[in-house]
């Protein structure tokens, strides 16, 4: 093979550090991180971005995402992002939050930020459990799903129903772009990247609040190997949490994405 035949088809995005992550083998946090790094690199925004990390498995997201970062209190990332964005409106500001952080502890902050049309982007990881503390029931845990704090399976009579966050936030006028994607297969990942790009473009163009919910696997706490975990997501999560665009404001639908 001559040198001319060698073509780089993939390289590590420059927005990621060289560190090996602390995430469990097979976990899709790493995929989500990579997509964010790729999108910000493609947009030329790496040096203009401030991330807000959550409490949960991604508490150390800033060890892997290589740009300015702050670390929020549990659930409060949208408020913290608001403080940064209002102070430095030309920066790209995003939160990276899990389901316990965003949909339980921080439901007030996320709803308020979306309703204000806060010009921030939210990347929301839904893996139906509290990963970091060992797999307890989350607001996103499916009916009947066993977790370490719903050992008999989530009983909706006493433990309530899962929250469809994307659909809920889509009802708010301040939300310009709200979508759900899945990270369980290659096609889903490609679609997720496009949605993340759209979400950051929405912010860049000042069109309002944007959020992408990413269905993710948690092999360790689900007690499944990676292959089975991906299959479980497809079989159980996708019917309850359908992939789609739940809010595309008129301005967003007319938005042009430049660059590539």
């Amino acid at each position: 093979m001559t040198e001319a035949d060698v073509k780089v088809v993939y390289k590590r995005p420059i927005g990621l550090t060289d560190l090996v992550t602390h995430y469990c083998p097979g976990c899709t946090h790493g995929v989500a991180h990579r997509l964010i790094a790729e999108v910000l690199e493609e947009m030329g925004e790496l040096n203009n971005t401030i991330g807000v990390a959550p409490v949960g498995c991604a508490v150390f997201a800033y060890n892997y995402l290589d740009f300015d970062f702050v670390e929020a209190a549990h659930g409060r990332a949208p408020a913290m992002a608001t403080g940064i964005k209002r102070t430095l409106p030309h920066k790209t500001v995003f939160t990276y939050q899990g389901d316990g952080d965003l949909a339980s502890m921080g439901m007030g902050e996320i709803v308020a930020a979306a309703s204000r049309g806060e010009q921030i982007t939210v990347i929301f990881i839904n893996n139906t459990n509290y990963g970091m503390t060992g797999g307890q029931m989350a607001p996103t845990t499916l009916p009947g799903q066993k977790t370490s704090s719903s050992p008999l399976g989530r009983d909706v009579e006493t433990q309530g129903y899962p929250i469809r966050t994307a659909e809920l936030l889509a009802t708010l006028d301040g939300a310009a772009f709200v979508a759900r994607r899945t990270l369980h297969d290659a096609r889903g990942i490609r679609m997720a990247k496009r949605a993340i790009r759209t979400a950051f473009e929405v912010q860049k163009q000042g069109l309002g609040f944007s959020m992408v919910e990413l269905l993710s696997i948690c092999p360790t706490n689900w007690g499944l190997n990676t292959t089975n975990a991906r299959q479980w997501l497809a079989e159980h999560m996708l019917p309850y949490y359908p992939v789609g665009d739940f809010k595309v404001s008129t301005a967003v639908s007319e938005m042009k994405i430049g660059g590539n």
């Binding site: 702050v70 929020a72 209190a73 409060r76 408020a79 913290m80 403080g83 102070t87 007030g108 902050e109």
Partner: peptide, 26 residues
Amino acid sequence: RAFVQAESELGAINMVYGAACTGLRT
């Protein structure tokens, strides 16, 4: 200058937290 009536005191103090990370008076 920036003014936000927050959703709660929790929201307000965490907005201050974010703004304080920029080192500008908040």
